[in-house]
Design a protein around this nucleic acid. Structure first.
Lengths: 269, 269
DNA sequence: CGGTTATTGTCCACATTATGGACAGTCGGA
DNA sequence: TCCGACTGTCCATAATGTGGACAATAACCG
């Protein structure tokens, strides 16, 4: 394998290599969404050997956690995963806290508003509110998953993380950056910019002609929990309006943070 | 499972013991719902050794698929699972097909109607419609999961399976039957009854004083896909009404089966 | 169509990984 | 303070999972 930091601090428990690998395959497949991914991309993203990935995927298919699409031969998350998910309450504390505030903010701003969480080394869009302005950027759907660092939300979240961890993630995601036309250096410098500015911007959105602005939301413990993002056509987000939008986002983020602090428990930590 | 085309023999692929074990731990935890389960119950249900379960659970916690509740020390399905589930379209073909029919049937019958699928060796309640009669049995919620064989839905599904497979499942679930006050012999004879009668009945419901009746729903390939269940207080389901209810359920089940056959693809197999 | 490449699937010798018996904490009740 | 029930850890051992090399498809073309 590739060498990384020597047992920095956190996750020691060993004797479960296979399980960890299987989970990372699952996460990669989740990023493939409904259509799934060809085996080759799983190979590249996980940096595992072909027989290993093949065996893992095959077992996951047998167990029903993964499906193989007849036509394309691609592998995707299977029916069993949502079934397992039913064991949890339907709405997380974060979603509950953000619900009303997002509604108001998206009405106020008029553009599409996204709530994005971090999950492992990915960002995951968990909520979306469509604004009133006639042109809306809808390309990112709830459930969209991408490597941390390639979207403005990802950059924002990484900017709010301890620098060392952000670097670790950037390194881990390196093999996945190519397909999003970016690389580790670019990502790191975008993170530095975001840290300086206090929010994340993406001038060339993942969709051509769009621009995104993201603020981060922290848990009471100071760890970033999510990002709040506005996406709009580029021309609608000039310098003047950028300031307004940033203020609205920052305000909303603080309100959500306050709600997370109040009740019994915060989400992740 | 049922592959009638090629390779009738089923799940050979080995070299993934650890992954399979981890998944079975996950499924057991899913049955624990929001509150989760103490480690001990996981031990019993999986029949794995303590160190093994402990290690698996610990890794799953590190990876975010499992959470440990601060207070109780119980383990439960973690936030990451619903996050993975977002990679799939929100409604399965089965749910879509059943939606309207369930609505009408529950209005017609007046008691609570459940849609239950098989997932591995468990049943899982995926939909519930509350009827109009003033006394309703609501104890089973969407997401409720229990070993195949302990509920009328489970018995119905097993009755619709090839006998050999039903026996296999009954054997596999044996260690879990005790906590539901049943055992393998009882389950097998209930299955035989259901097969003879054409539907599953549970005189002493899992909740005291209730009675349940279930019909099965098959996929176009003839494999049982789900069960349709009515639960009501015992006194409301005398012999006369039982017949009426069974007719309504059977009718509804056929309609759902027809819808599954029509569109592009059937759900599980 | 044969020929060439890209992708997926399989085999098997080997050592790393995962296993479980035995033991050590931890917590709560009386 | 002792007891009992549960949870967590150690470590010698072998069985499990690994990956290099090879085989089988599928896809692409001239």
């Amino acid at each position: 394998m590739d060498s990384r930091t020597i047992q920095a601090g956190s996750e020691p428990r060993q004797g479960a290599q296979a399980i960890r690998r299987a989970l990372s395959v699952l996460r990669v497949l989740a990023a493939g969404g409904e259509n799934g991914l060809p085996l080759k991309e799983v190979l590249q993203a996980t940096r595992l050997s072909r027989p290993t990935v093949h065996r893992i995927v095959h077992v996951l298919v047998e167990e029903g956690l993964v499906e193989r699409h007849q036509r394309s031969g691609r592998y995707a998350i299977g029916t069993q995963v949502p079934e397992l998910a039913l064991a949890r309450p339907s709405r997380s504390p974060l979603l509950a806290a953000a619900d009303e505030i997002m509604q108001r903010t998206s009405e106020l701003i008029g553009d599409t508003l996204f709530l994005t969480v971090r999950t492992g080394n990915d960002t995951l869009c968990v909520d979306r509110r469509i604004g009133s302005y006639p042109i809306q950027v809808l390309s990112i759907a709830v459930g969209a998953r991408r490597p941390l660092g390639v979207s403005s939300a990802g950059v924002a979240i990484m900017a709010a993380l301890p620098a060392a961890e952000a670097r670790r993630i950037a390194a881990a995601n390196e093999p996945r950056f190519a397909s999003y036309r970016t690389d580790r250096q670019t990502v790191l410098s975008q993170i530095a910019d975001a840290r300086r500015r206090g929010y994340g911007v993406r001038e060339i959105g993942l969709v051509k002609g769009t621009k995104s602005i993201s603020t981060w939301i922290k848990t009471p413990s100071g760890y970033p929990a999510a990002a709040l993002t506005i996406s709009a056509v580029r021309t609608r987000l000039g310098p003047r309006r950028e300031q307004e939008v940033v203020e609205a986002l920052t305000e909303s983020a603080s309100r959500i943070e306050a709600m997370l602090a109040k009740p019994d428990m915060a989400p992740r930590s």
